[in-house]
């Protein structure tokens, strides 16, 4: 039946298709309507970006094009190391977010409707708290004299405070906390969309709960999981506040390095190179993200 109706549709659309596309006029009136906004966007957003890219390849004084800055960047130990470290930390954060976020989303779908709303509201509410306030709050919680250490000490589990802060651990905790909703919310929606019939039929075919989860449910959530993970990864790359505050100056990431280059040493050309590199990485990942989304939705 589906085949037949498709065939009929095709037959009708066939001859008419060719002239229709040729007949599509360019909508000048629409262009005019959005022209002001396009102009503002171009001037405020695109031109500065292009300008930054220009700085990356031009000599500061003469304006001539040069690859000197890129060379300096690639040859330097420090800059490349920061890039790698940022990629690595972002990967860590993404993994931790997945390990925490997937079970959280799954558990939420199993709750009664009212509890579900409460949990979702709690997750969304974190967006309302300023990221700066949240990051500093971690100091109160994780510091040597903070809640966690004091509780551990009181419970007798530790004798010395555990160093949660001013190192990579603190940064990962802080960043995961901020990025968790970006994973949990889409996953929650995707999990709800899984056809319950598939799970039921798998059960009648004899599958255990574990098998149903790993072979039927989980694979169906993987596209959303992958897309959201890439989003979390991209966002981690650009983090500034959390590494600055919770890293104690010992775990500089790309954004912190840019801070040094721009605000302290005024090496704008190198900062421009780093910007271009970061943008290239991000755009590539974003393209992958879009492909994944389109493919599975």
């Amino acid at each position: 039946m589906i085949d037949a109706s498709l065939a009929i549709d095709g037959a009708v659309a066939g001859p008419a298709a060719a002239p229709a596309s040729a007949r599509r006029r360019f909508r000048w009136d629409l262009l005019l309507l959005i022209a002001p906004l396009l102009l503002v966007t171009a001037v405020v957003f695109d031109v500065p970006l292009l300008n930054t890219a220009y700085w990356a390849v031009s000599d500061a004084k003469s304006g001539a094009l040069t690859t000197r800055h890129f060379q300096e960047f690639l040859e330097s130990n420090a800059y490349m190391r920061i890039i790698w470290r940022t990629l690595f930390v972002s990967l860590e954060v993404t993994l931790v977010t997945i390990l925490l976020g997937y079970p959280l989303a799954y558990w939420t779908t199993k709750l009664r409707p009212r509890l579900r709303m409460i949990v979702l509201a709690l997750v969304v509410m974190t967006f309302w708290v300023s990221i700066l306030v949240r990051t500093y709050a971690w100091i109160v919680i994780l510091g040597n004299a903070g809640l966690v250490n004091r509780s551990l000490h009181w419970l007798g589990i530790t004798s010395k405070p555990v160093e949660f802060l001013y190192n990579e651990l603190g940064i990962v905790i802080g960043m995961t906390n901020v990025l968790l909703p970006f994973l949990v919310l889409p996953l929650y929606a995707a999990m709800l969309r899984v056809d319950q019939r598939l799970l039921q039929v798998a059960e009648t075919l004899g599958a255990s709960r574990l098998r149903i989860f790993w072979q039927v449910f989980f694979p169906l959530t993987v596209p959303t999981l992958a897309a959201s993970s890439i989003l979390v990864f991209i966002l981690s790359l650009g983090f500034y506040i959390t590494p600055a505050v919770l890293g104690g100056g010992k775990v500089p990431l790309i954004a912190n390095m840019m801070d040094l280059l721009i605000n302290r040493f005024a090496r704008w050309e190198i900062a421009a190179v780093v910007s271009v590199v970061l943008m290239a990485i991000t755009l590539t990942l974003y393209a992958v993200y879009q492909r994944l989304r389109e493919k599975y939705q």
Binding site: S76, N77, A78, R81, I82, G249, P252, M257, L260
Partner: peptide
């Protein structure tokens, strides 16, 4: 300074 800070 750059090298020191960024290479930690």
């Amino acid at each position: 300074w750059n090298d020191f800070k960024l290479l930690q």
